[in-house]
């Protein structure tokens, strides 16, 4: 096995720009008390991370992130927001130092762990050289699907995927129960015609 050297490519600047914007959006989401703005920012965060996943060649993950993060969860969070207040309560300062310390320690540990990771794109890394290569070699002949990722997801580990679908279905039912049947209309079962009257009666806080 030859040692793998990561070649320097100008794409790194694109990655750096994307990650910097991710960081800025995360900080802005933390600092903002305006919940609608936070929902929009989380959609932007999903789009940014999807672009970053595409840059890492994980287009399927990127597509899921864009569909779920920027599409569905934005709508879900908006439906949740309609059931509560539109502004977050001002936070009481005080216990921040302990939390900051814990976060910094965890972050430092994660950074330390990345030192042992194989280089990006290393053909000798365990993920690329052991079982994975076997699937890459055999999938095209065994499963009549043009995409290896699809053939692994839907055929080799089909039962696992079915379990995942069950989990997602359960989560969806739970979210619908939490938000209420008419959640897209603001949490009350109102018809479109009498919406205004019903809202007036129910709105008294």
């Amino acid at each position: 096995m030859t040692e793998f050297e990561t070649v320097f490519s100008p794409i790194i600047f694109l990655d750096l720009a994307l990650l910097t914007m991710l960081f800025l959006v995360a900080i802005a989401m933390l600092r903002s008390r305006h919940l609608f703005g936070v929902v929009m920012l989380s959609g932007i965060y999903s789009l940014l991370s999807a672009a970053f996943f595409v840059s890492l060649d994980a287009v399927d993950v990127a597509f899921t992130e864009a569909a779920v993060g920027a599409g569905i969860s934005t709508v879900l969070m908006l439906s949740g927001m309609l059931l509560t207040a539109r502004r977050e309560k001002p936070k009481t300062p005080g216990r921040a130092p302990v939390a900051l310390l814990a976060v910094l320690a965890t972050g430092a540990a994660l950074f330390y762990a990345t030192i042992d990771m194989p280089a990006f794109g290393d053909p000798n890394s365990p993920a690329n050289s052991a079982v994975g290569q076997d699937y890459v070699d055999r999938a095209a002949g065994e499963i009549p699907m043009p995409n290896i990722v699809t053939s692994i997801l839907a055929s080799y580990r089909g039962f696992d995927t079915m379990g995942e679908v069950m989990v997602i279905f359960t989560a969806g039912v739970a979210v619908m129960l939490l938000l209420g049947v008419g959640s897209m209309r603001g949490g009350r079962r109102v018809s479109d015609i009498e919406a205004d009257d019903a809202a007036d009666n129910g709105k008294a806080e």
Binding site: M40, G43, A70, G71, T74, V75, L78, S79, L82, M184, R185, G186, A195, D196, A199, K203
Partner: peptide, 15 residues
């Protein structure tokens, strides 16, 4: 998703 957000928002507004 933009259509969904706007539709949502217009309902809120009319209320």
């Amino acid at each position: 998703s933009t259509i969904a957000i706007l539709r949502f928002f217009s309902y809120r507004r009319s209320r």
